[in-house]
């Protein structure tokens, strides 16, 4: 059987909110080492990869590996019934066709349980190699959210260029053009306010803004976001989820034909 308890249930709520617009359904794979998900959007342009480690949970037990086919809009409906301070326990029997979610209020005076119907999903897995990127940029997650929101109101695609001057986001559309440049900045006492640009070589890539904006639905999960760029490769937008794991979004670049 599978059983996992997380005392900070709001994290689970935020995770599902972060990916439900991007992917309709997918297999959450459970194993003794934790939970993971890899799912592509319907157009195969971007991919969400989620890793939650067993030791990040308050309690974790998984006797055998199994995929749990989840419809994320339905998962979200049930998680919306959990209070933000609730502890959440997930339970499933081996080869079950449902996932039980139990919500406990922080003073344990309210307990509720819901069953989510599981689906059989044939999923495609992509092998994503570990690699060095030409540029890795860490910035406040709120800053990333602001940039992609602002630029989406101006244009459809963004050119992201990383140089020793900083990282520049440029777009243009019917109303005109926009450029936002962030410089390496570690002056704040608060680490989450730092912008750190780790540049091995300059790189410039173009992406569809609506997907980059969609990734910012994960802003509530982490104070910082990391962007990884290499010429002619998908961008990786990564949020660390505390000690629990991470959520990564991959988006294919637009390449001149």
């Amino acid at each position: 059987m599978f059983e996992a308890k997380i005392s900070q249930g709001s994290v689970l709520k935020k995770l599902v909110e972060a990916l439900k617009e991007l992917v309709t359904e997918g297999n959450i794979d459970v194993s003794p080492s934790g939970m993971s998900l890899q799912a592509m959007d319907s157009s195969h342009v971007c991919l969400v990869s989620l890793v939650l480690r067993d030791d990040g949970f308050d309690h974790f037990r998984c006797d055998r590996n199994m995929p749990m086919g989840i419809h994320f809009a339905n998962f979200s409906k049930i998680l919306k019934c959990a209070g933000n301070d609730d502890a959440i326990t997930l339970k499933a029997e081996d080869n079950a066709d449902q996932l039980t979610l139990m919500f406990e209020s922080s003073n344990q005076d309210r307990i509720s349980d819901f069953d989510l119907k599981l689906m059989s999903i044939e999923s495609e897995h992509l092998g994503i190699p570990d690699q060095d990127y030409s540029a890795e940029i860490k910035m406040p997650a709120s800053e990333y959210q602001r940039i992609v929101r602002d630029l989406t109101s101006i244009g459809d695609t963004v050119l992201i260029s990383a140089t020793k001057e900083g990282i520049k986001f440029s777009t243009s559309g019917d109303v005109g053009t926009a450029n936002v440049t962030l410089r390496h900045n570690t002056t704040s006492e608060k680490q989450e306010e730092h912008t750190i640009i780790d540049l091995k070589e300059p790189v410039a890539l173009t992406f569809a803004l609506r997907y980059l904006k969609n990734f910012s639905n994960a802003t509530a999960l982490a104070p910082q976001v990391k962007l990884s760029l290499t010429k002619d490769l998908p961008i990786v937008v990564e949020y660390q989820v505390g000690e629990l794991g991470n959520i990564r979004f991959y988006l294919a670049p637009k390449i001149d034909d």
Binding site: H44, V45, E124, L126, A208, A252
Partner: peptide, 14 residues
């Protein structure tokens, strides 16, 4: 014009 590529062109399907 730039084209939007499929992710499968970058990473192998397992």
């Amino acid at each position: 014009t730039p084209i939007q590529n499929d992710l499968c062109e970058f990473y192998a399907l397992l």
